[in-house]
Design a protein around this nucleic acid. Structure first.
Lengths: 245, 245
DNA sequence: CCTAAATGTCTATTGATCTAGACAATCATA
DNA sequence: TATGATTGTCTAGATCAATAGACATTTAGG
């Protein structure tokens, strides 16, 4: 990996947070797999060129996330190794893609309502401005930890029962099927990365200051008519996206 | 857009930096296109629930980046609207994809050498461990601003002149062609997001604390044999990735 | 059972960040 | 040419982040 042991000062990002991010990445890369432990605090402090207390703040943040557990006299043990891979392809289906990587996949419906399409939503779905659309907000989890938060929009005229069917079936694919749409494909996905905002911190149970990968996706039926526009925010420290082409 | 006007305290990320990130995002989204200006400092301070001085720190950081310019008595003018879209598809070619979005595309070769393939590189290229590979390090720019930094690996036995040809032609596609490979396709791309490290801050001329999108890509010839493994780090505040499927 | 290695806790100090308020300087416009 | 809106500058104080050092506590191992 291409990890460098340096931190930057006076950047608006606290040193303990930078160090926590580095250690989380190193754990995810398997750098500490031999021992199953993070190096001692004094060693990390020397590596990063900071005081031991600063390293302790970083480790405390990782312990708060449940990623490590410090044991007095022994060291800091790694509890979890992270980063689930989320595949994006023409046939992207959330639950299928994660198969095998996590034991339990959960999807929780946070809210549903009918709204008027904003400019962005209307353009994506090929609808006139202010056309009625169904909005679903969901959070998906793997092994009990939230992985992504999604806001999805569907044309209300074509899929009037979307909210109801999703609530019953717990799957977009099944909800489409129940309304006569047997198949659909991913048309485009746009990805940006940014800091998580307050709502995302709560929904995804992120440690504050974390990064989210935001994916804006359009799905269409086999005739090319858009059927879904979704905005998914992935916890960047728990997920990577994989595009197979 | 789904932008919320909240900032988090005691997160290890300074408020001025969070606010700078938000405003940068809003500018990129075209939220201020009507006026071509950022809202007044007092308004922003009220929106974010912070002191005006804190907003000023954020705007100073954006001015440092050349994104805005404050004019006493008038307001803070937007100098650049950001986020170039980088398309990822089976036929991903760096320079072609950006066509029209930026005037000048520049690619600078930082270094070249022959190294032994690490486990990661060997696995991606389908080579034995420690097989000889050519490593190229480059930085690409649009309109004079760096957009991405790449480390690319090529099988040295098959493409012995890779470094030389790239230096001469300035393009991976052309360098391949000069060595008898007429066509190649993108096989897979993995994307993660994280904070930029010190080297990336310098290479990409990022404001400290910024986020990078890291894309690990494998290209193969038409027989499916891998010809290139690359690790590209995009300046997340200047780019978005688009996957057309 | 001692010792080394590691984490846990405490105090004190310095510098960065954020708030608060006041006022100056500049620009657009009525 | 006033006036209001806006950015620029300064001071002071409060809170957070980071350093420094000392010592306690726990664990593993000789």
């Amino acid at each position: 990996m291409v990890g460098r042991r340096t931190v930057e000062r006076q950047t608006g990002v606290a040193l303990w947070r930078q160090i926590a991010d580095r250690i989380r990445l190193a754990i995810g890369n398997g750098d500490y797999d031999e021992t199953g432990m993070v190096p001692p605090e004094t060693v990390l402090a020397a590596e990063f060129g900071v005081n031991r207390h600063t390293v302790r703040s970083a480790l405390a943040a990782l312990a708060e996330e449940g990623l490590v557990r410090a044991v007095q006299g022994r060291g800091t043990l790694i509890e979890r190794k992270d980063r689930v891979t989320y595949p994006i392809s023409r046939r992207t289906r959330f639950s299928q893609g994660l198969g095998g990587q996590v034991q339990e996949i959960g999807s929780k419906l946070l809210g549903q309502r009918e709204v008027q399409a904003s400019g962005e939503v209307a353009a994506a779905l090929g609808l006139p401005l202010n056309a009625p659309v169904v909005e679903l907000r969901t959070v998906s989890s793997g092994d009990g930890r939230p992985l992504s938060a999604t806001i999805a929009y569907f044309p209300a005229e074509r899929f009037p029962e979307m909210a109801q069917q999703y609530g019953r079936l717990g799957s977009v694919t099944k909800a489409f099927a129940a309304q006569g749409l047997e198949d659909y494909v991913r048309v485009s996905t746009e990805i940006v990365a940014r800091h998580a905002d307050a709502e995302e911190l709560e929904l995804l149970k992120l440690s504050p200051g974390a990064i989210v990968l935001e994916a804006l996706a359009v799905n269409a039926d086999l005739d090319g008519r858009p059927v879904e526009f979704s905005l998914t925010r992935f916890a960047a420290d728990r997920m990577k996206l994989r595009i197979d082409t």
